[in-house]
Write a protein that binds this DNA or RNA. Structure first.
Lengths: 334, 334
DNA sequence: TTGAAAGCGTTACCAA
DNA sequence: TTGGTAACGCTTTCAA
């Protein structure tokens, strides 16, 4: 392996000079810099990450803890992951992927053995065991999601309460008086994933404010789940004309089941959905949506981690304002 | 930070002894081992990964290179990723995630800077730029997928040719004489992803052998894509009674579009699909499928990498035999 | 069965 | 603007 010493010898300088050329932490004469860079190139030198980490106590690695579930929407998850990795590279960071099957121990292990400089924790639940562990670790941590007690950990998420409110206002503005929420899978509520609760709360609040008749149903992403959910809604609210869908995985099935029941969108029922950015084109009808900006969230999570690593920023909670893009799936009530 | 020297002092032994207690690379008296382990526990010692990597030239990290596409089926991808991470942990390995937006340079960077011991490359294309790079790296590499020229790299994938054959035989055995293949997105063919071609070839070969009338259409995963694809099939083959679907992302839309056109499954048309393991339950009707065993493939990829790292195994190509599980979506031709 | 000590490749401090 | 040189924390060879 070609080391910094080889480069130094080749360029006729000391190894510390080479190091400084690389890091830019002190000024180097143009001539020296040129020679060093030439040697680096000629010898095909690459710094050794382990040696660097040892000497500088910096790994340039971020650990990303990912849930291991089937009831969560996989494309959304993947959106986070890719945007985190891509954003991290902009800061010359790499990403180590942890899954939750190791439990919170993974975070502890990685932090203790100095494999990563900061921790990103996805899909946090209200009472997530990874939270106390992260807090005990004195390693900068950013949570993607919003637990009840973030303590001094940073959080970033979509403002799901505001998102629900936008959906309800939109339907109310169009004259709908009977609306229903198709929520996430029951399992999501049960394990206390806060975005579900926050969305539901926003939904209920504004529905009441606007004097609407509103109900809500969780919805398993299977065909039966969607069918039962629609049955439930139509029993409780036979006059429903507006649907808010907060369940990306069930959306496709739901739309085709509506058609199956001869409920036309938007003539018979308006549909507004929370949906990943990219999916818009995949539906039979352009959907009015509140996009779930997984890219923005991932990028922001990385940026917040970087700020904390630079020591110039204390932990904070950032909730992104939702946008609502209107399309043909919502219309004035007939 | 508590180091190995601290442990050694606390236990009254040398630091090399502590190291050997940890690695098990030489025998230690029970008494010494006990004392050392007690000290480790008491002081909360954790080995420093960077120092280890520097001294041993082993990182215990695997790099996983992931595509960054929207036309690939995301749940399948995620299946690979999670199974790789989980399997890696069994060998005390962690996984560094690379995306293809950095291009093949990511692999080079990670290997050169000794951030990983081996490379796993997902979703390889026939003429993938990551292949020559990997070959030049003298770093054990396992490809997930099967390129035209694997050279001396290991490969693991489902035997897609055999998978197609099973599907066609199944339909032929049920008496279907006019069948069609709903293939992946055109983009997948265009960029030469070999599984698409291998599947198509298997399909065509057996269809001819069995004397069937067969056609095939690529299919974009959008609603329009599915509609156009079905239109195309019904024009070319109005008498089709059997459909082979090799397009996980389009499957849901396709089923609902069939229903929309009053084509009942399986009464009017039998459907057999290549589909991720877990999805089976999500369809309105239990589907006859050839499961895509992403878990098995991920596990196998890790195992092959481990064998190569142990130096006891030379590169090999492993194609997994497909299973076919029958369900209600395929039936005897009426 | 154990210890001493020489690396591993960088960084960063102290001098010049 | 540069060089010398201690760390950094661990593994492993050589000796005992």
């Amino acid at each position: 392996m070609v080391s910094i010493a080889d480069v130094a010898q080749d360029a006729g300088v000391s190894s510390s000079t080479v190091s400084y050329v690389l890091s830019g932490k002190r000024s180097i004469s143009p001539e020296t810099r040129r020679r060093v860079e030439a040697s680096i190139h000629r010898l095909g030198y690459h710094p050794h990450a382990g040696a660097r980490a040892l000497a500088s106590s910096r790994t340039n690695v971020l650990a990303l803890s990912m849930p291991l579930r089937t009831d969560i929407d996989v494309p959304v998850l993947m959106g986070f992951v890719t945007s985190v990795v891509t954003a991290a590279r902009k800061y010359d960071y790499d990403v180590l992927l942890l899954t939750n099957d190791e439990g919170p121990e993974g975070l502890r292990r990685v932090a203790n053995s100095a494999m990563a400089d900061a921790l990103l924790v996805m899909d946090v639940e209200v009472d997530d065991p990874r939270i106390p562990v992260s807090q005990s670790l004195s390693c900068p941590t950013v949570l993607i999601g919003l637990p009840d007690e973030p303590g001094d950990l940073s959080c970033v998420d979509l403002d799901f309460s505001a998102a629900a409110k936008r959906c309800v206002h939109h339907l109310a503005d169009l004259g709908h008086e009977h609306i229903a929420l198709v929520g996430p899978s029951p399992a999501v509520y049960e394990r206390g994933t806060s975005f579900a609760t926050r969305f539901l709360r926003g939904f209920t609040t504004v529905a009441r404010e606007r004097g609407l008749h509103a109900s809500s149903q969780p919805c398993a992403p299977s065909y039966e789940g969607v069918r039962d959910c629609l049955d439930g809604i139509l029993v409780e609210q036979p006059r429903v004309t507006g649907l808010v869908v907060h369940n990306e995985a069930a959306l496709g099935t739901l739309l085709s089941e509506l058609r199956n029941r001869d409920m036309r969108v938007p003539e018979d029922v308006s549909v507004v959905a929370v949906s990943p950015d990219e999916m818009a084109a995949n539906w039979p009808i352009p959907l009015t949506t509140v996009p779930l900006p997984s890219d923005d969230i991932g990028v922001l999570a990385v940026e917040m981690a970087m700020r904390e690593l630079e020591g110039v920023k204390s932990p904070e909670v950032r909730l992104l304002s939702p946008r609502l893009t209107t399309a043909r799936s919502t219309a004035q009530r007939h």
